[in-house]
Design a protein around this nucleic acid. Structure first.
Lengths: 351, 351
DNA sequence: CTTAGCACTCGTGACTGGAGAGTGCTAATT
DNA sequence: AATTAGCACTCTCCAGTCACGAGTGCTAAG
């Protein structure tokens, strides 16, 4: 369903104006502001048609027009011109990333902060995840008689630790023996492969191996609890939230443990930026918000996701290009520092 | 400056009523509600005295009375009776902790969640910190030619990792040699001691040692960015925040990186629970809120802190006893699973 | 010291009327 | 057939008014 050129132009201008001003925009104001070569009456007629077709609405009879979800959708799809970020800005952001440390969680936080600031909305960036975590190394460090710290190092420099309780006192020497054996037996294996492995293990070794397996599995399950979140304040300052009942709604969305529920990270096409506008979101609570999401990652299989969350009244071109750029940049960073050839990984250790 | 018994009683009732109802309470309502053996006129006289002395105020001429910071302070100090939590509740909470995993960060999150829920306010619980971190073990795992993952295990089962870049390609064997040497040389040492150490090191070893030292030092500096935070929503639902300008204020306080600034964790007496009411807080932004803070820890020197943040209109007795209980409980948990004799620690490794 | 009584103060909520912005329709113009 | 001027109409917003009720502070009597 396509629009006449004039109507399209009008819709585009109206969205631009509304995104800026946050107040419904009327025919008169439209003509004045953009010096249109028509009278307000003509504009009114056109607006009436746009409304009939569902691209805009009015809050009440005597108010200006406001874009609907469908209007935004058409705009994003066909009307807006996506301007690339200026070289200058890109350079500045790149610089910040190279100034930052070499750890992925620093990048993730930085990306969220930069994104939130650039688009003036909330931003979520998840930690990057391998498709399937593989074991790189196990360490056991004695803590007390019957307890030890288990440190599991996985591919792509992820580390998790857990305190392990043994049914009997263990010396450091015994622990080292166990970890050596497990390192030999399980290097480069995934959780599933460890589970199916036929290697002979003592009871203690099995105890440890099991814990390792669980850690790998839980890393794969990939909690968004580790995601970085920035810019909630910025969003809450927007006029949409003047009446504070919507505030709670958004805060609920933003609680860390709910992120996965509200933001469909998993349903994303690779590489491209996805936009979900208002009611297009599955969850009711998100019906007043728009999402701009993208995966990022490396050819080697590391992938994470980032999203911008804000009211539907959002500067889409800017948001989309910023998300695209940052997602590419994160990919580059990961590739440079972490990526390992997806097949050859075994390397020094086996056979 | 002490109050007559009747005035004290009155203040106490008034605070109780106000904490419940969140609306200014008048003399008439007071008499009716508590069946006082005086007329409202008498109560009015007494209230006038209380106001004169600064324990309560008037929002405007014809409104009821509201406790002032000073009133709350007197109440907390002299009037309220701190009731211990019921054995039942304590048992439930204990149970939850024993059900949880064996990792300190799970406890910290759990403690924050339980606390927030119990006192219906926001709760912050920091990760426990040693007075001074000591090295337990170093591991180096190769990632790419010139990069490796440095894993530092410290006392009390804390683990930190960092990607390390070398000026030249390193094999895993070479990395293992370095970590072995460093383990021998620096085991049980603190950041400062490593810095002062006279051990001969190759250039590569020094590179790694330096990174280790920085990690220990930064752990000591103790970031509150790792603190667990719960219950922001609960607080924001309170009538104090009906007008949404104060919301932003609180959100600012609650941003992770600001916690240290607003909450004076460091100035705490050991063991006891500290209450800071309204303007007693140093930071202006906190002048409308109260804090109930406590340290927790073990005799062996691990210490963390927890705090409840909410409007000054807060149920102080309940909050204080809950904080006290949870802080004791966290101490117990840490002692059971982590504490090592503060002096003997060297153990297997030296001399 | 306590209390009854009463005038007084303010905030709240309901109602009102006018101003302003914007629409939608009709009829005239191009 | 498209555009425009004109105009009646609709709604929101805001300021003003008014009555109500909760609460105070004071005075004078018990």
């Amino acid at each position: 369903m396509s629009l006449t050129e004039r109507r399209a132009k009008l819709l585009s201008l109206l969205i631009g104006e509304y995104v800026d001003s946050a107040t419904p925009v009327g025919s008169e104001a439209m003509v004045r502001r953009y010096e249109l070569p028509f009278s307000s009456a003509t504009i009114r007629n056109e607006m009436a048609r746009l409304e009939e077709d569902g691209y805009i609405t009015h809050p009440h009879t005597s108010a200006g027009r406001v874009p609907s979800d469908k209007g935004y959708r058409y705009y994003v799809e066909a009307l807006m011109e996506e301007r690339d970020l200026s070289a200058q800005i890109k350079q500045t952001i790149r610089h910040q990333f190279h100034q930052a440390g070499r750890e992925e969680d620093e990048w993730v936080h930085l990306a969220a902060a930069v994104l939130a600031r650039a688009v003036e909305n909330a931003a979520v960036v998840t930690m990057p995840n391998m498709a399937e975590s593989r074991l790189k190394r196990v360490e056991l460090v004695s803590i007390q008689d019957t307890s030890a710290l288990l440190v599991v190092v996985m591919q792509q420099a992820r580390v998790k630790q857990q305190v392990l309780i043994f049914p009997e006192p263990m010396e450091q020497d015994g622990l080292t023996a166990i970890s050596n054996h497990l390192n030999d037996a399980f290097r480069s294996l995934s959780a599933g492969e460890i589970g199916r492995s036929q290697v002979q293990l003592t009871q203690m070794e099995w105890h440890v191996a099991n814990a390792v397996r669980e850690i790998l599995a839980s890393t794969d399950a990939g909690g968004f609890d580790e995601a970085a979140l920035e810019g909630i304040r910025t969003v809450l300052q927007k006029p949409e939230f003047a009446s504070s009942d919507k505030v709670l709604n958004l805060l609920d969305v933003m609680e860390r443990r709910n992120l996965g529920k509200y933001i469909p990270f998993s349903e994303l096409a690779d590489g491209s930026v996805t936009v979900m506008i208002g009611a297009e979101n599955e969850q009711d609570a998100m019906h007043d918000y728009s999402l701009v999401i993208s995966r990022y990652g490396t050819p080697g299989g590391i992938t994470g996701a980032m999203a911008v969350v804000g009211p539907t009244r959002m500067h889409y071109p800017r948001t989309i290009s910023t998300v695209r750029f940052l997602s590419e940049l994160m990919g580059e960073m990961l590739t440079t520092f972490y990526d390992e050839p997806p097949v050859t990984e075994q390397g020094a250790g086996d056979k």
